[in-house]
Simulated assay, not measured.
Amino acid sequence: MGDDTPRRDIDERTVTNVFNAEVNHGLVIQTGTFDGDVHVHTPPGRSPEQDAAMTELKRRLEAQERAEREAGLRREQERRRRRRNQELAGELQAREDRVRPIRTLAPAAFTVLAFVLLLVGNFSFLSYAGIFVCFTCAAVARYAPTSVLEEFLGKK
């Protein structure tokens, strides 16, 4: 009887009622003329199994909410870490770009100077020492830390 249309199989003197789920806020008792006892039954209380199931459900929902909050925090920390790493990488690249001319030109210049000393020198101790100094300077220019070269260039 879920619709509000009148039933044709009941005569006009009979009272009919239609209940639907739209406005049911709890227990509904409707009476008319009746003979005998009236028994009203309410839903039974929860069993220990139902209580345990509700407790478990609550625990799982709380754990899920906690995991979602922690995942959000981890994502935020990871995003900040990545941004910090990108900023550091950009700064290191800028520092490396400032000393790139020294790293590329100085070793070549010192190597050429060493060969000139070798060709022009009289094979004395002084010319060999000059050649050693040239190769040492070339190695320093090529492999020295960026901070040392920046200090040398005065670009810090």
Rank of each mutant, 00 (worst) to 15 (best):
G90I: 03
A94M: 11
G45W: 04
G72Y: 00
P43Y: 04
N17D: 13
R80P: 03
P101F: 04
T5I: 09
E22F: 02
D51I: 08
R74Y: 06
T55H: 07
S124G: 15
L119Y: 10
R66L: 08
P101E: 10
R81F: 07
V99L: 02
A114R: 05
E12Y: 09
D37P: 01
T16E: 10
A53Q: 07
V28M: 08
C134I: 01
E22P: 00
Y128L: 02
F110V: 00
R103L: 09
A109E: 13
I29P: 02
A52N: 04
H25D: 14
Y143A: 03
E70P: 02
A89V: 09
S127Q: 08
E91V: 12
T14R: 13
I29H: 06
P48K: 00
F19N: 11
A89T: 09
A53T: 05
R46Q: 11
Y143C: 06
D9S: 09
R13H: 13
F19M: 07
L149G: 06
L105Y: 11
A94D: 15
A129W: 06
A89W: 13
D3H: 07
N122I: 07
P43G: 10
R83T: 09
E70S: 03
G45D: 09
T33R: 15
L88N: 14
F135V: 05
R13E: 13
F152V: 06
H39I: 06
G45V: 05
E56D: 12
V120G: 12
C134P: 08
E87Q: 15
M54E: 15
V15H: 04
N17R: 14
R103W: 12
G72K: 02
F125Y: 09
V116L: 08
K156Y: 11
C137V: 02
L105S: 14
V99C: 11
L27M: 11
H39D: 06
R79G: 05
R142H: 11
N24D: 12
I10T: 10
P6Q: 04
L119C: 06
D35G: 05
R95F: 11
T31D: 05
P43F: 03
Q30H: 11
H41C: 02
F34G: 12
C134E: 01
A141H: 00
D51G: 03
E65N: 08
R142M: 07
Y128V: 00
V112T: 15
V112Y: 07
E56Q: 12
Q93W: 14
E49C: 04
R84I: 14
G32N: 00
A52S: 02
R83A: 14
G154V: 09
D51V: 04
H39K: 14
H41V: 14
F125Q: 06
P101M: 07
I131R: 05
E150V: 03
Q77N: 10
Q64T: 00
G32L: 04
I102L: 15
M1Y: 01
C137S: 03
V133H: 01
R66K: 14
A109P: 01
E68S: 01
V38A: 02
